[in-house]
């Protein structure tokens, strides 16, 4: 039976808190994983393995990039200087609704995209995977 959304949110929150050794009060939905919580790539791996154990959904680290990019090619997602295009920003707004595309226009480097990814964004990805597999 698929987990309810509240259960998914709780599972992701505790996975983040355990992996990063922070309190669940700090691992709030609007906290960014890399910025606010200081996660490194090895921590993201730890979080995803814990999510798999708690929510039964396997997500590879590279799938995070694929998820935020939404099937848009690299060439369309960013420009020649590595800045996210208008089309890329519109896609990011779908998976990271908290961002302001106008404020980020011409300023967001492709390699910085995941720095905007929050605990809540991860919960949404997990929820969609749970829904897809239920």
């Amino acid at each position: 039976m698929a987990l309810a959304r509240a259960e998914i949110d709780a599972a992701v929150q505790s996975a983040v808190a355990e992996a990063l050794s922070v309190s669940e009060d700090e691992a709030t939905p609007d906290a960014t994983l890399l910025g606010d919580l200081g996660a490194e790539s090895i921590d993201l791996l730890d979080i995803l393995f814990r999510v798999e154990r708690k929510a039964g959904v396997k997500i590879q680290a590279s799938e995070l990039a694929a998820w935020v990019q939404g099937g848009i090619s690299d060439e369309e997602f960013g420009d020649a200087n590595g800045m996210i295009s208008a089309k890329g920003l519109a896609q990011l707004k779908k998976v990271m609704p908290q961002i302001d595309p106008d404020a980020l226009a011409g300023k967001l480097e492709a390699e910085k995209v995941l720095s905007l990814f929050t605990v809540g964004n991860l919960s949404e990805l997990v929820a969609q995977r749970v829904g897809a597999s239920s």
Partner: peptide, 15 residues
Amino acid sequence: GPDAPTSGEGGASVP
């Protein structure tokens, strides 16, 4: 072709 990498190719990536 593309220049040697300076800031990625425009794709998102996990650091």
